[in-house]
Design a protein around this nucleic acid. Structure first.
Lengths: 233, 233, 233, 233
DNA sequence: AATGAATGAGTCTTCATTCAT
DNA sequence: TATGAATGAAGACTCATTCAT
């Protein structure tokens, strides 16, 4: 009970942080605001989270957890081909991002950190408070969970014939993920409807998904030239 | 002459800024350091660049200019199919990023800003100093230059038969770009060879490019089943 | 029994505090650490000691008590001249300090407080929590206990002829004590063997004790020109 | 000239810091107060002194410089025996301390730091900001300057016969210094006129100096059994 | 006796920016 | 153009202390 109260308060702070990070960005959000918005004292915020970086890592951890939920839900759906799953995933990721832009920022930021982390020469550029955060350590553990599920989706698709058999699951999945992440990043800049450029989100998305499917499609799909519909979104 | 001296000093500051932003990041770089590294006074730095955001926007502008150069060089190459050009582009972008990670950061950051900018509801989240920067205004103008060239590459490929004719140039090009940008972001995190995940940069890149080509390939390519080599890189 | 349990817990906290103050210093030690190291709650620490200053005063009290033990043990030794006792004291104090540097710090700190306390103009500079500490009040009572024993040693020496008869016991003893205290303070800085300065602890100590003896020696000592050996240390 | 303005401001801050450290102590003095008392902005304080520790080290440096001045002035006096010089020194040090209690605190504090510094095992207990302070580095250089002069005083006394020839200058001088430092520390606690203890500053000082002289005196002094008067104080 | 969550005043420190010269 | 001393707002973080349970 006491422990549950503790978790509740911890969650409260986390939720407030997410809200503030979303609306004003990490940098522009002060610990003071977090505390005040959560109606607690500044000290208590530091009681639950070692420092601001630690809080951000906790948020990032939550983002990964929720993203993993998206991956898992799609993967658990019965009676869907691998290709359908990946199509769902693209739509699902976009929905996920829209619902909470902050999460995507956090995930991309973490990936940026991992670029530094995985290179001996640049690892020291990472702020030591990040490295010391317990949530960062947890992230090191779970960072590939989504990847593992995604790879299984491709394997599944290869087995069920919805995806070309010559495709290597790892390479293929990460290429798909790269597409989706890049799509997210470009959405917005490209949507700027001015001058000749006229690609809007609504226009691009189906074309984007179609291209992704074309890239993957196995022979089975030849009979169904229609765009595979995303089931969940 | 005076004007040229002025440009030289301006360029000096810009180069110093790029070097520092690259090695320590934008946030961790102080205007003091920029001035000291450039061997000029802090005041002079502010004479050439209104403020730190302005300096960053100038750097971003330079990044876009150089990226445009990459696009243009590839597009100008004679005797290459559209598909080859896009393949070159993928390799070229990766090389460009490796050579100066800062540029890619700046470009992605700008795209993030544009996401806010293109939405009436979020535009006010952009720091006013950014909006007031003359370099930001220039960026608004040139931001689609690369896109325009890329779209021409796809059109070219459709004409020369190296790319499927049913593909829409705009959608196709931005999807390609999304792939490349996402690839860049994932490189590093994914390269972490631990547990099951075993995709390294060297492994992924050819597979990635092959998938991209598969996605685009027209009938002409049927006779050349080999991976199209990048000419420039 | 309850009272004994209480004393045990109180002693536990005190011992932990001494250990921590010794290894990290008073300022750098937090009440949190004290509690955690003692495996009790923070609140309980405050149950036994009113506040941090109070705890420090308790530690200081213990230091004085132990120092008094050293004085008493030496004074109780049978068959030793006053000069021998004071020689023992010098060695004993040095040993005492080495064994627990914290104690010496606390004693010197208390003496610094007393400088303020004994001057009407500066007494208000002392933190009120110190003045209110019951242990501080006890210290006011016992602070001269060591002095009293020391003075008796000198008197003893005058009587037994080991110390010059013209020496005033009070002045003489406090001068001896000053020597010892100053010696402690200089040990370390002076030991730094660099440049011309070459006095090491091992070199200095016998010379120091010899000088002290020379200062005190009565006629009886003429027959024993050797350095009087410290009996206990 | 510009440089002189800089030095003036630096000196202003230093003087303010000394005044505040003296009246409220180092810990209780905030950088805010220093700035406000000096009528400058907080930022400027940090422009001249890297941080609070650095400022304290600068104060300590000044203390050592002034103390060195006291040593030098006494040593330069013509026609005085070594014993007279050391007597002057004792009085001079006491005067010096009284005039600015803060200086003595700083000097003793530095000696405490040196105890840690000269021991490989404890050096890491010193705050890194202290180690990084340029003034600390200067202190490492000059810390023995006073010692060197003092040793010369003893040597001088040995030559002129005012000090026993068998005394080793180094050991003797540092023993003298230890006496003086300890005397300073005890002054105050001992002066507390309560109960039996009745030694006051005025009572102790001449006795203390007499003892010191007895400890040192060579044959020449036999003819002048009076207490050698301090010339400067 | 005992807990440990909660408080909040207090401080150091940073740094973009300005301006007198 | 050029300098660099000066500003001051802003923010992260600490920790002794309290109190409801």
């Amino acid at each position: 009970m006491a422990s549950s109260a503790r978790e509740k308060k911890s969650k409260l702070i986390l939720d407030v942080a997410i809200k503030l990070f979303t609306s004003k960005g990490y940098m522009a959000t002060t610990m003071d605001e977090v505390a005040k918005t959560a109606n607690i004292s500044k000290g208590l915020t530091y009681f639950y989270f070692k420092n601001k970086e630690d809080l951000y890592m906790a948020v990032t951890k939550k983002a990964f957890d929720e993203l993993k939920g998206v991956f898992r839900d799609i993967f658990k759906q019965k009676g869907r081909t691998g290709l359908q799953m990946l199509t769902d995933l693209a739509s699902g990721y976009i929905t996920f991002t829209k619902a909470n832009r902050m999460y995507n920022e956090a995930i991309l930021n973490f990936m940026g950190i991992m670029q530094l982390y995985n290179n001996e020469l640049t690892r020291n550029q990472i702020h030591h408070l990040i490295l010391e955060s317990e949530h960062f350590q947890k992230l090191l553990d779970i960072q590939h969970d989504c990847g593992r599920i995604g790879i299984q989706m491709v394997s599944h698709g290869v087995k069920d014939g919805s995806i070309r058999p010559e495709l290597q699951p790892e390479v293929t999945f990460y290429t798909i993920w790269a597409m989706i992440i890049g799509y997210e990043r470009l959405t917005g800049p490209v949507g700027f409807d001015e001058k000749e450029i006229k690609i809007h989100l609504d226009n691009w998305k189906p074309g984007f998904i179609k291209l992704m499917q074309d890239m993957l499609k196995g022979t089975i799909q030849a009979q169904k030239p229609q765009v595979v519909q995303a089931s969940l979104f």
